[in-house]
Computed example of a mutant assay.
Amino acid sequence: MKNVYVVRHCKADGQEPDAGLTDLGIQQTEIVAKFFLDKDIDFIISSPFERAYRTIAPLAEKIGIRVVLDDRLAERILSSQNHPDWRDMLHKTYDDLDLCYEGGESSNTAMSRAISVVMEVLNGEDKNIVFVSHGNLISLLLMHFDDRIGFKEWESLSNPDVFHLIFSADDKPNIHRIWE
């Protein structure tokens, strides 16, 4: 059995790759670290975006594990252009997983890169793994395993948020939202 904890980053100052955490977000990192201290974490992998790896850095320091950065966990790019109706555009990408806007990536493309990380880790020796990423990519990763997850579930995510995926003999994990 393997436990994969999928973590959405703490409260951030923006969406850019170098956007830092807010003061509240920095406080939340300590709460996240405390939350995981009794979970026997043996591997941590994160989006290279500052808000993601800063979310898990206090835990990594406390348990003496380095955070592995992986570009495949970076946030999904919806479009290279800023659109005032981006939420409507995003919603459509949950209904049409191949829909791709200019300069962006489809839901299927983003989902595939996230799942490739999960599959690599599942084939490794680690048993209790933390993934840190971003809301849209996380919702797509979860959708891969449970097609009932979509736009509405993305909207309900919090910063931070944590899902526990329990993998046993089959490829479909039991998924539980465990952050409150």
Rank of each mutant, 00 (worst) to 15 (best):
L99V: 03
E16H: 11
M111S: 05
G103F: 12
S79F: 03
L73Y: 03
T29A: 08
T29I: 11
E102W: 08
G104P: 03
G25R: 03
M119K: 15
F36V: 01
I44R: 00
L90E: 01
M89A: 12
L73T: 04
R113M: 11
P84D: 14
D18L: 14
L78R: 04
L90Y: 02
G103D: 08
A110Y: 05
L97D: 12
I56Y: 01
N108Y: 08
G104Q: 06
E75K: 04
N82G: 06
A57C: 07
L97Y: 14
L24F: 06
R54C: 04
L24A: 13
T22E: 09
L97I: 15
S79D: 14
M111D: 01
R72G: 05
D96V: 10
V118P: 00
S46D: 03
W86V: 01
T29H: 10
R72M: 03
K92R: 15
V68K: 10
Y94R: 04
C100A: 10
D40C: 12
R87F: 14
A33G: 02
T29V: 12
E102R: 10
D71C: 10
P84I: 03
A57G: 01
G14K: 04
K62T: 07
D85Q: 05
D96R: 07
D38W: 01
L37N: 09
L78G: 06
L59M: 04
M111E: 05
D85T: 02
Y94I: 02
D18M: 14
S106P: 00
E75W: 06
A110K: 03
A114L: 04
